[in-house]
Design a protein around this nucleic acid. Structure first.
Lengths: 211, 211
DNA sequence: GATTACATACCAACCAGTCGGTATCTTTAA
DNA sequence: TTAAAGATACCGACTGGTTGGTATGTAATC
């Protein structure tokens, strides 16, 4: 990638179109022809930049990581002094992103991995990288919040960061099923409540199942 | 439906095959031909029982509701005397179901609604019904647990039941991305911890955001 | 002048869905 | 008791449009 900034060339037009089209219709139902039409390029351009459809899927996941990575890196929740406030601010930011139609606020890689995890390992790995890398941006703050409170729980910062991602992904599924963001916002409130309780009311309680 | 028990006729063979095939490959990538081959029936039989592919999708969601509904109705977690123990027992039961390959323990309707929520409203509604009806089986126990503790929180039993479903659905997405159930089990542990904290350590704390 | 970045035309395989036909089960009435 | 009559369940060849992918050509750029 010599040019990090995206000129309106065929490749980036295809990737941008892929983000919205795959989020709306899923990966399998997104056809190369439709994608080219939406991006305003020809099929020749598509197969010039991508060897096949799966390679576009991988590139779309990576493009998604870059776009969302920049969005979250520039978000204001990092400014809080207390690390727990930064984590809670992250969740508030996620909740504030629930705007527009369902395809506008849902997650590309969460959608795509559901269809491809068995049939396209390259896409699954790209989606895993996207989710896991994003989750890792929360780990330092979680760990700092634990240290501030001298907590030594039986869960790891990584597992909590991944749990947060799981709640968000699940909230999107419910929003899709119910046709609106309200149920997702409610779920994010429950998650916020969990973090508040966990760090302020009893984070050292042993694992209720003991395993 | 005069005969509630499933004879090995073409329709139920197709529905059973659909459950596993759609969970593994997704709805769009599941072709009618492949489905018929897996079920051991012909295409003529398919279009005798279903007007089109979408109608199979709806029927598959309903079949899924019946199969899983019977599974959960017969599960032992209902035997606990305390309603909170029944809810926690439900979660332990869900965790115990994380056996076999990823397609074996993931949720059909969560998978299907992601691909169809924009393009096939009938399927989306069927998936919503499946999830919401299942969530509703938890509401009475949640409400009873609240009453036992004289709680008057700013969340409803319905929202908590749906949040539980969101965590489960999200856990399945993470399991698909990571290729195994461990991350899903970890997320279910966090959810169990949330319920424990919520009902035993501070369920009356006000909404941290205040909205 | 050669590599890159597209455009156009084309293809074989595949897709959901159709259709004429057969086997079997149910109803009815002589 | 049985047989005509109709409905249901299923079969499998066929179709027309779509699919991902290719082959080849051309204009711009390095």
């Amino acid at each position: 990638m010599p040019a990090p900034t995206a000129k309106p060339n065929a490749r980036s037009k295809l990737l941008d179109a892929a983000l919205s089209m795959i989020r709306a219709k899923g990966y399998s139902a997104t056809t190369v022809d439709e994608l080219c039409a939406a991006a305003g390029v020809t099929k020749g351009a598509f197969f010039h930049h991508f060897r096949n459809k799966d390679e576009l899927g991988v590139a779309a996941a990576e493009h998604w990581s870059e776009v969302t990575g920049a969005l979250f890196a520039a978000a204001p929740y990092h400014d809080h002094a207390d690390p727990l406030d930064r984590v809670l601010g992250y969740l508030a930011f996620r909740k504030a992103l629930l705007q527009g139609g369902v395809p506008d606020f849902t997650c590309l890689v969460g959608t795509m991995v559901q269809e491809t995890y068995e049939t396209a390992p390259a896409i699954r790995d790209a989606c895993d990288r996207s989710i896991s890398t994003h989750a890792r941006t929360l780990e330092a703050d979680i760990e700092a919040a634990m240290r501030d409170r001298a907590m030594s729980p039986d869960w790891t910062p990584e597992s909590l960061a991944l749990h947060i991602q799981a709640v968000l992904q699940g909230a999107f599924i419910l929003a899709k099923a119910k046709g609106g963001p309200q149920v997702a916002a409610d779920s994010m409130d429950h998650l916020t409540r969990y973090l508040t309780l966990l760090f302020c009311a009893g984070g050292d309680t042993p694992n209720p199942k003991g395993d």
